[in-house]
Design a protein around this nucleic acid. Structure first.
Length: 745
DNA sequence: TCTCTCACTTC
DNA sequence: TGAAGTGAGAG
């Protein structure tokens, strides 16, 4: 009954790229193709208590939530907006005419990031949430000044490994733990016009990292199930849940849409900056990183050597005691030991910036780090020889047993990839479609760092050229392998994933689960200006609001069965489950998903977007390749845009809502096919220059959605109209935006 | 490894 | 002024 089995636009595609799947970041080498990487797409998880959001600025973001709140306040329980409830799409939700834009993004404070990256960036995660430092900031250009955009950020696992800091370096310590529910963070100023975004540095410093799985700083919303391209739950939040000792890669997304509800139908342009990868820790492991943080983070000023902070005092005390000690033993030992516990630099990360891999992106730690079995001496030697030595070592150590290493270094992966001649149609499709678009290619992204942010400016490259006193005193001579970062060319630095992230095909069953386990969307608190509204909303939205308790709830609620079926439905046939990437398999096996029940066509949108989305997903399709999809990124077309929400997934039979909500879908296993032809010629499909196969699939997808088009539901239109009116009222009362906060250069 | 408290900082 | 963001360090 579901579209499932036959429908998948691209076999395995939606599964592989579904945003909510616990997918991993592609290797840097492939990151250039990030465009194919699906952003997690959202599943909104409403915070149990919206109060916290009330004080947030982000007036611009308010409209987004207002829309949701407005709907909730209309008194029309979303849960009642089933198939029988006819809503008319809000005018503002209608897709805008596509206007050419050529988004370019460049990472701010790149030098600072490079400094951290060379040493193996560590980000502390705490139960209450810790901010990232350096803060993730980007500058955008090439946007359509008039058009509105929603900017988002999420953090994905960089690989399938768990790490440990051993002998002054990060080493693979085994397979990664199950991924935490992911969320996507929406910049509080979203949506804003291109002009507004381009006029300032976009900063995501409010996003917090936590290891608290029961974190409540998120909320999930379920979207209508009758939307072929987007169904299920979307998680948003202000905190992202990470696993300690795991490596992550932040991603930045630009979505041309004027409200959050359009996200499912919009194209995601994804940008990945390898130098921003980091390992989550509950306590700093590498003293070098600690020192860098202290030297650059204003809030850690108290720990700096200079000044009269606690650190200074403590240091003085320590020195005093040490002097006494030294005086007592100096005569005996002859010299004092300068080498302290200060660890050597992080060769692994440093290597990732090595020239060898910079052209295609940085390598992963797993590729660079010596395996556990490697002798310490060897490791030391590498460090002493700097990056070059590391690179060499890296190349020669690709055969380790490490779970992560077997994936190979970028070079290795590339090799494997190439060696797979057309082995995978899906891959080829994506690759083919990934024709180079200089405009969007990483290379086109300006690598220059505009200058450090206020925080970074305080003491930016302090360590690069002149190590701090503390470092000098503590560092082991010759251990630091800070080779000059070779750079990340912009190309390497900003892997643009132009395309959007495929993946988001929210199929009811699949979608719901994926969202929970995968990547929910994070909404900035500012966007939750609904206070108690959320509660009522939650209560009234019913199915729409799948979860209110946070990601954990969502996760637990998922049904693995649904997942499996969804996977099957997704056309994994093209790629057997056995070929699924680690995270996928893991997900399939361990997922607990609850098929969120989508309900009627609450927000019927034109499906022209969907075709693109489908194409995107198809491009990203091959799950087996998702990790290195980018080898051919260079060939990707710039203009190629993918919608994150690729495939409409069949709704599990178990979902009563679904059945009612998706009459056409449920009834027809293959109604899509029939409509596919018609859609094939749609603008959307045309927009996607990917292979014909992809297009056709996309078309198919689109067709399905077409069949579900709201146009046919006058009642829904009326209901929507009412919601719209409420929204207008709410909007009219909006406070002036306070947008300076988050985007100050 | 992780959690919590502390002194210190920014805003 | 006080909320919130820091790493240190004890447990």
């Amino acid at each position: 009954m579901s579209l499932s089995m036959r429908d998948p636009v691209i076999p395995g595609t939606s599964m592989a790229y579904h945003p909510f799947l616990p997918h991993r970041a592609p290797d840097f080498a492939m990151s250039a193709v990030l465009g194919h990487q699906p952003p997690f797409f959202p599943a909104l998880t409403l915070p149990p208590n919206g109060a916290a959001a009330l004080s947030l600025p982000g007036a611009l973001a308010k409209p987004i939530m207002d829309q949701l709140v407005g709907a909730a306040e209309t008194g029309i329980p979303f849960s009642s907006l089933g198939p029988q409830t006819h809503l008319r799409p809000l005018k503002t939700m209608e897709p805008e005419e596509e206007v050419e834009d050529d988004p370019k993004v460049h990472l701010e404070a790149k030098e600072l990031w490079d400094q951290f990256h060379k040493r193996g960036t560590e980000m502390v995660i705490t139960k209450s949430g810790r901010r990232m430092f350096p803060p993730f900031k980007v500058r955008c250009s090439g946007l359509d000044k008039k058009a509105k955009y929603i900017l988002l950020m999420d953090i994905i696992a960089a690989d399938d490994c768990r790490y440990k800091f051993h002998n002054s370096r990060w080493m693979v310590a085994g397979k990664a733990d199950p991924e935490m529910p992911k969320r996507m963070y929406i910049h509080p100023d979203s949506p804003a016009t291109g002009e507004q975004w381009m006029s300032k540095v976009v900063t995501f410093h409010k996003l917090k990292l936590t290891n608290n799985i029961s974190d409540k700083h998120g909320f999930t919303l379920a979207f209508p199930s009758d939307q072929a391209t987007w169904q299920g739950n979307y998680s948003f939040g202000t905190q992202t849940i990470l696993n300690s000792m795991h490596k992550y890669q932040p991603r930045f997304h630009i979505v041309r849409a004027n409200d959050i509800l359009k996200l499912p139908y919009s194209t995601f342009r994804t940008y990945l900056f390898p130098e921003t990868e980091f390992i989550a820790v509950t306590a700093y492991q590498n003293d070098k990183i600690t020192q860098l943080k202290i030297d650059n983070n204003p809030f850690a000023k108290g720990f700096r050597d200079t000044g009269n902070g606690r650190r200074e005092k403590r240091k003085q005390l320590t020195l005093q005691s040490m002097r006494v000690f030294d005086d007592r033993h100096k005569k005996e030992n002859g010299t004092s030991d300068e080498s302290s516990s200060e660890q050597a630099s992080f060769s692994c990360f440093a290597q990732s910036s090595s020239p060898a891999v910079s052209t295609v992106g940085t390598s992963n730690l797993k590729d660079l780090c010596p395996s556990e079995g490697e002798s310490d001496a060897e490791a030391e030697s590498k460090e002493e020889h700097g990056p070059e030595a590391c690179d060499a070592a890296k190349i020669t150590t690709t055969t380790s047993e490490d779970p992560c290493r077997d994936k190979g270094s970028p070079a290795v992966k590339a090799h494997l990839f190439v060696a797979e001649p057309g082995g995978r149609p899906r891959d080829s499709g994506r690759l083919d479609k990934a024709s180079p678009d200089s405009r969007h290619s990483p290379a086109t992204i300006s690598s220059s760092t505009r200058g450090l942010g206020a925080e970074e400016r305080r003491s930016p490259g302090r360590e690069g050229a002149a190590p701090s006193k503390a470092e000098e005193a503590r560092a082991l001579p010759g251990k630091e392998a800070f080779a000059p970062l070779t750079v990340q060319t912009d190309a390497a630095a900003a892997h643009l994933g132009q395309g959007p992230l495929p993946g988001l095909g929210f199929a009811p069953g699949l979608a719901g689960q994926q969202f929970f386990n995968g990547h929910p969307l994070f909404l900035h608190p500012g966007q939750f200006a609904m206070g108690g509204a959320f509660s009522s909303m939650a209560a009234g939205m019913g199915p729409l609001l799948a979860t209110v308790s946070g990601a954990s709830t969502g996760v637990s609620g998922l049904d693995s069965t649904a997942m499996a079926s969804a996977a099957a439905a997704q056309g994994l046939s093209g790629a057997s489950a056995a070929t699924l990437p680690f995270h996928l398999q893991q997900h399939v096996l361990a997922s607990q998903g609850l098929a969120m029940s989508p309900f009627g066509s609450l927000f019927p949108y034109p499906y022209t977007y969907m075709a693109a989305a489908a194409a995107a997903s198809s491009a990203a399709a091959s799950s087996s390749v998702h990790r290195h999809p980018f080898l051919n990124l260079n060939t990707m077309r710039p203009r190629l845009r993918y919608s994150p929400y690729s495939i409409p997934v069949p709704v599990p039979d178990s979902s009563s809502l679904l059945t009612t909500a998706l009459p056409s879908m449920a009834a027809a296993p293959g109604p899509l096919d029939g409509k596919a032809a018609a859609l094939a010629a749609s603008p959307a499909s045309v927009a996607v220059d990917s292979g014909s196969e992809l297009n056709s699939r996309s078309s198919t997808l689109s067709s399905s959605s077409v069949s579900l088009s709201p146009k046919l539901c006058p009642e829904k239109e009326a209901a929507t109209s009412e919601l719209q009116n409420i929204q207008r009222l709410v909007s009219g009362l909006e406070a002036k935006p306070d947008r300076s906060r988050s985007a100050s250069p």
